[in-house]
Amino acid sequence: MINSNLIPDFTLSPRIDQTGAEERALRFTRRSIKKESKINGLKLVLNMIDLTTLEGKDTEGKVKQLCYKAMHLHDALPGLPTVAAVCVYPLFVKTAKKALEGSGIKVASVATAFPGGQAPRDVKIRETKFAVNEGADEVDMVISRGRFHAGEYNYVFDEIAAVKEACGPARLKVILETGELVSFDKIRRASDIAMYAGADFIKTSTGKIQPAATLPVTLIMLEAIRDFYYKTGKKVGMKPAGGISKSKTALHYLVMVKEVLGEGWLTNEWFRFGASSLANDVLMQIAKETTGIYQAANYFSID
């Protein structure tokens, strides 16, 4: 938590010029990532993935298979890292925790009435505590977007702070659902609220709303993280989630992290991709770079 006199007036969060931010984001896509730079980057990407299943039809069986994939991305290619975490609903935390035992892969659980977040606060707190008690290393919460739009920033702030407290040792990722905030000004403001309220990570999206993660939105959030770091000395992580399914796009994000926050954030401790299909595309690209042969999807297990 933050020293009280460091908490800013969030209505004064910096304004963002959309056109300028989008042009800046486009510049990152102009970086040419070739050869060893590409392979190293792709391995880094793999290691930053929160392999995710968040479906109504999830079962223990599905979660177990996903956990196996998390540990054995593509055994045909030696020397690959594992993903960073597996991300599931609270009911499957125990299953995942057991399946991943000894792998070093974290278990992340969504909570707080994901994805809508339309539930009383005590329900959200109970759900958070449940996930942590089941063994979740990380909790991905959603903010109350309705309250945020209504201008009730104190409510949003206090809710995040309360969930953070409920997390105990688990790291808290705060999902802003940027696709519902729409303007870059609001995305920046929500980022500031989340960080000052105690977020360990800020995260773009649930994956259930379009648009999900985009480069410009992630840029706005990375810049918020940078400003917060300079103000408080505290590092906050970043997790774009939803819609990142191609290696090339993932590398653009990596370029952005490198050039906005630098070395300190080029690790899965501070940067994650929330994705389900990205891993296989990255694997295919690594295989192509290694063998020189273009790959086909059927040679890579889907989960």
Binding site: S37, G233, G262, E263, L266
Partner: peptide, 19 residues
């Protein structure tokens, strides 16, 4: 948290570089 400090510095000399 520590108050804002002028000694904070981001490092752009990264281990991942562009070929």
């Amino acid at each position: 948290l520590p108050r804002k400090s002028n000694t904070l510095k981001l490092s752009f000399d990264t281990s991942w570089t562009y070929a």
